[in-house]
Nucleic acid binder design. Structure first.
Lengths: 339, 339
DNA sequence: GAATAATACGAAAACGTTTTAGTGTTGACA
DNA sequence: TGTCAACACTAAAACGTTTTCGTATTATTC
């Protein structure tokens, strides 16, 4: 086991000062060619690598980004992480991932843990509990300390920071409109409670499309689930009672599960009943029939978030201007609707 | 914007020394009750939190774990991360996630980046390229520096370190045996090339079960895909030519895709042809029919890995004893086989 | 030959902690 | 009154860097 070598070790070995070693390794003009060559050769031989922690302490820059998300076993979030990781890594940053598991307390603890010097900035998506409580003091504290924050997807207007979302309302609007254009008459919505910012937006888009149409809104055709968990019985009852001919679901799982239910009843997809979900994950692609979805472009979202964050981190300026980037959703047409 | 307060600030404000402040905050016996109360009150008022970086530099402990995996948009790996995160977080550790994207070079770069002080240990699963090349020098260098490493799932015997795997051979053996017991005669295997340690193990289990049975091995019934990518045409051709009555796939995607293919041909699952896959992900659960799988218990694997790593990190002893933990796979029975 | 400039290097502070080894003051005891 | 211990605190080193400022030596100029 050979321990890491430090500047001090090199200095002692070569009988020069630490400053000389440091400068020599940086190819400073101050140091003679002879000394530089000697030091660099020695450093290379012993595989010297500067200690990141020491540099962080000196520079007050860690080159770490904290990512706090509610859940990682979720296709959308993993694609976002991938996008963040890609961009961040190319810029020499590491990504520290923390999971809030939809819990307010965990979100707070994780942020506090990271905010004490471990990271240069946060990228996060709010836990459902946080959105329900509407308590954003942990975010405000962090921004007040001058730590940049980028919120994505599950955001709030109550915190001043950069934000990245897709136009969820537009996505739901386009999907609903698609159903209307295809002559569907009983267009249902399966969603979660409105405290989730995204669910609310999506519901709005659904409502808007229906209001603009001849169909109008029928509250009975809207199923609001209490939590993110699948309540299989609730969906079953809902579909049996309402017998819609089209269903918009706020995620893939609701959609795929619903498809199986109606298929068991002998209905044909998309002739008898059509489906559109949100999130372009593996489920949608490999479902039978494959599911038409509103793609959220998670990877792009991650990249944009990382870019905004790193720009803020690296900009010397203390401008307090924040922007919200709105990405366009795309309808990915598959076999769960006519085409 | 209020900047973070340091020990020095408190010391100056209260006209005591930095050491006194440090000790007072630690409730040291050396400090008088008066002073302790004064310091602690002040610290609380100004929300003092020690700087993690400074502590890391002092202690030579970062309380960070580096996780290097090939891919994050993959259910198995995300469950492992969740397991790691859960355990690590409970122990006060943060998780830095790096993606090798199945690339040897990225794996090396990521490890080098983290090995210079950023983390206390690694948990990793090898990239396919690394396994193909068989070059593990980056791992050896790290272990030689005394940085503990835990390999999981995609491992190698060429590096001395702790390891966690599931018994892939046993899983495949049990699955194949299940088919045999159910009277299947033409049992096919769809796998990837053998350089992936897990594929090899699974193939062995499949072969072993067949050899022990009256059926024996038929090489034609084995399809080896070149890469992890789905080659849809290859699978289509294979199924058409061989017409198996049972198929074991090394992942969910191969299985779900295959199921759709045979359903389009009018075959009934599981009567005409049965399927078992690996990885208990969302796809298996929501596929139609739902897919029987060999569950890999990713979350458990993550927890065990994190536990082994943190034990090593925190054990003072310099024992050079390494263990390999083998987790038992479980067959999760669903509708893609008779039951 | 003296003043100046250029060269090559080192000392020391700084980042924010922790911790060891003092140090000065007080009170008790013989 | 001198010794010793207890108490409450401080100085300083250490972790591994970077960087500013200072300085000794040599070279250049008039």
């Amino acid at each position: 086991m050979k321990a890491k070598i430090t500047l001090k070790d090199i200095a002692r070995e070569l009988e020069v000062s630490i400053s000389t070693v440091s400068k020599a390794l940086k190819n400073s003009e101050e140091i003679s060619r002879d000394t530089k060559e000697k030091v660099q050769a020695f450093a290379k031989l012993y595989n010297y690598k500067p200690n990141n922690i020491a540099i962080s302490l000196k520079n007050k820059r860690t080159k770490n980004i904290g990512v706090v998300i509610p859940d990682i076993v979720h296709h959308f979030f993993t694609t976002v992480i991938r996008g963040i990781e890609k961009y961040a890594n190319a810029k020499g940053y590491n990504v520290i991932v923390c999971l809030s598991e939809e819990s307010f307390d965990k979100e707070v603890i994780n942020m506090e843990m990271l905010a004490n010097g471990s990271i240069d900035g946060f990228i996060m998506s709010l836990s459902s509990e946080t959105q329900r409580k509407g308590d954003y003091n942990h975010l405000k504290e962090v921004t007040e300390q001058g730590i940049p924050v980028v919120l994505f997807d599950r955001i709030t207007q109550e915190v001043e920071c950069d934000k990245v979302v897709i136009d969820d309302e537009l996505g739901a609007y386009q999907a609903t409109k698609k159903f209307i254009d295809q002559g569907k008459k009983k267009i249902a919505l399966i969603t979660t409670d409105d405290y989730l910012s995204v669910s609310k937006e999506r519901t709005n888009g659904y409502l808007k499309a229906l209001q603009e149409s001849a169909l109008g809104v029928n509250e009975d055709l809207m199923l609001k689930m209490d939590s993110m968990e699948m309540d299989e019985q609730a969906i079953k009852d809902f579909l049996n009672e309402q017998e819609p001919d089209a269903v918009l679901c706020v995620n893939e799982i609701f959609a795929v599960y619903s498809m199986r239910l109606v298929q068991e009843k002998g209905l044909k997809i998309p002739e008898d009943i059509a489906f559109i979900g949100f999130t372009d994950g593996v489920l949608s692609k490999y479902a039978n029939p494959s599911l038409t979805v509103v793609a959220q472009h998670g990877e792009k979202m991650g990249e944009v978030s990382a870019q905004m964050l790193i720009d803020k981190i690296e900009s010397e300026a203390e401008e307090e201007t924040y922007q919200t980037k709105i990405l366009e959703p795309t309808l990915v047409i598959r076999d769960s609707i006519a085409h």
